[in-house]
């Protein structure tokens, strides 16, 4: 089964249609997704800025990781739940969205950065826990995290716009390739 037919089948599900056509449910889920930026992006950004030595230099990094990262995780879970529901409400268009695809790719990279940080950099935190400006590896992880999550916010916001949608032709060939869109000839 191709990915496209998977999303097409999702779109056929009654509760996908209901969510799509609901008066308030979609708006409320989307709002929670946006508000949770404060919890998720806000807390991870503060940790990243600390890794860069740009804020709270007097607070040990391990203290932030222990007391603040659980809030980041909670925010992330809420993001995934609301984000998945948003995809379920508009499956095919979202699947074909160039910004959604970009966002998913960036999410993988951000996940990789989290994994690298926690497996390679953070285990040695005891050696630099109280340093106002952590060592290079930690600063790089913080900077990469900030840049990736900011790009994820950007691409997420752009999903709402239909500039590159499949049903808006003609598009550049590269766009149609990236959205796996096959417009009918003559359009």
């Amino acid at each position: 089964m191709s990915l496209l037919s998977f999303f097409e089948q999702l779109a056929e599900l009654p509760w996908s249609v209901e969510l799509h056509e609901s008066q308030y449910a979609y708006s409320i889920i989307e709002s929670i997704h946006v508000w949770t930026l404060c919890l998720f992006f806000g807390t991870i950004a503060m940790v990243d800025l600390r890794l860069l030595g740009l804020t709270m230099r007097g607070v040990p990094v391990s203290e932030l990781a222990r007391r603040v990262l659980p809030w980041t995780v909670a925010g992330f879970i809420l993001m995934v739940i609301t984000g998945t529901l948003l995809v379920f409400a508009i499956p095919v268009r979202t699947y074909q969205s160039i910004f959604f695809r970009g966002k998913m790719l960036l999410l993988v990279l951000a996940g990789l950065n989290v994994w690298l940080f926690h497996s390679r950099v953070y285990p040695k935190v005891a050696a630099w826990d109280a340093d106002g400006v952590p060592p290079r590896a930690a600063r790089v992880a913080g900077a990469v995290s900030l840049v990736l999550w900011s790009c994820i916010i950007f691409s997420g916001r752009m999903i709402a716009y239909n500039w590159f949608d499949c049903d808006r032709q003609p598009q550049l060939a590269i766009i149609n390739f990236l959205t796996s869109c096959a417009p009918a000839s003559g359009q």
């Binding site: 946006v34 930026l37 404060c38 919890l39 992006f41 806000g42 807390t43 991870i44 950004a45 503060m46 809030w71 916010i153």
Partner: peptide, 9 residues
């Protein structure tokens, strides 16, 4: 909004 949320929190 995200950065503001972080500092306020």
């Amino acid at each position: 909004l995200g950065f503001l949320g972080g500092t306020v929190l």
